[in-house]
């Protein structure tokens, strides 16, 4: 009998992942998006090695608003700081905020959307009302409401998880305003998944509702969550940039949006300092687009209509 006992090794899973990767990387958009992303992640990972520590008005060496040259590849700002230095440091702030906000948004959106779709009835009605409320809530208004509260509670100079309070607010605001989109997508997918026969089989097998959600529904939501997660990051970059541009950022931890805001206030546009506005703007645009490309490629990869095996 003992020779009949199986050795269970999840090698099939590895094969499935390999198949997924080869299909995903077959899309040109995915390749381009990943390439850009890797580039910016490297910038964000080691800014000090690449361009030295973040320059301040005190450590600035260049002329005021000097155009790009051999010494300052992307020119300088109104107090003589190197724009390249600030953009590279800004990558870290912008990407971290966008990714963390996306994590918040995915966790909230998936939990709420899955619970609403799975239980249905009154639970669904109330959770979807909450979702609709956050869906229409403008992020800027929410930021204006939350900022004073956080500053009051935390104190202006303190840091939360390594973020200065105003950046923490942006993080929370993006997380809170983008989960509703995820929740809607997840709910509708859950509604169709829960009618599948394998859910009935799990019930006959004695599995609890929690275990059915975690072991049966969640794994089948991964395609939607991944594809929409990439779109949420793109949106988060955009919202972060606009909130910072509107002055909610922190000059001591400048993101791309903060740089745009500084440039705007320094009159970069009227002074013809295109490098000062263009560099952070182009970065935000590129990263945002890369995530859209990746999201679309993920969607195509997982899209059941195009898959050979449903």
């Amino acid at each position: 009998m003992s020779d009949r006992i199986v050795q269970y090794s999840p090698s099939g899973r590895a094969g499935a992942i390999k198949g997924f990767l080869s299909k995903f990387l077959g899309y040109g958009g995915a390749q381009l998006g990943l390439l850009c992303l890797v580039f910016f992640i490297v910038l964000a990972a080691v800014p000090n090695i690449l361009v030295g520590p973040l320059e301040t008005a005190g450590t600035a060496t260049g002329d005021f608003l000097a155009p790009p040259s051999g010494q300052h590849l992307l020119g300088t700002d109104e107090v003589g700081r190197d724009v390249l230095n600030m953009v590279v440091h800004g990558a870290r702030i912008s990407l971290t905020i966008a990714l963390l906000a996306t994590v918040i948004s995915l966790i909230l959106g998936t939990t709420i959307g899955m619970t609403a779709g799975y239980y249905g009835g009154r639970v669904d009605v109330w959770l979807m009302r909450l979702t609709d409320f956050f869906f229409v809530m403008p992020s800027f208004v929410l930021a204006l409401v939350i900022t004073p509260v956080v500053l009051e509670v935390m104190g202006r100079g303190r840091e939360i998880l390594g973020f200065r309070p105003s950046l923490f607010v942006i993080l929370v605001v993006i997380g809170m305003t983008s989960w509703a989109f995820v929740a809607r997508v997840v709910r509708s997918q859950t509604l169709s998944l829960k009618e599948r026969t394998f859910i009935d089989r799990a019930r006959v097998a004695g599995s609890s509702n929690f275990s059915i959600m975690v072991r049966h529904i969640l794994p089948n939501l991964v395609p939607q969550i991944a594809a929409n997660g990439a779109l949420v990051v793109a949106g988060a970059i955009y919202v972060e940039t606009s909130l910072s541009f509107l002055g909610l950022g922190d000059p001591l931890q400048p993101s791309w949006g903060t740089l745009l805001s500084l440039a705007q206030r320094a009159g970069a546009a009227s002074a013809g300092a295109w490098w000062y506005l263009g560099a952070p703007g182009l970065c935000a645009l590129t990263v945002s687009l890369s995530f859209v490309l990746i999201g679309n490629a993920l969607d195509d990869t997982f899209n059941p209509r195009r898959r050979v095996i449903p």
């Binding site: 199986v6 269970y8 999840p10 099939g12 899973r13 599948r196 026969t197 394998f198 009935d200 089989r201 799990a202 072991r215 049966h216 794994p219 089948n220 449903p310």
Partner: peptide, 10 residues
Amino acid sequence: QALNPRHTVF
């Protein structure tokens, strides 16, 4: 339909 496509036979 009765088998979860993401689960192994085990």
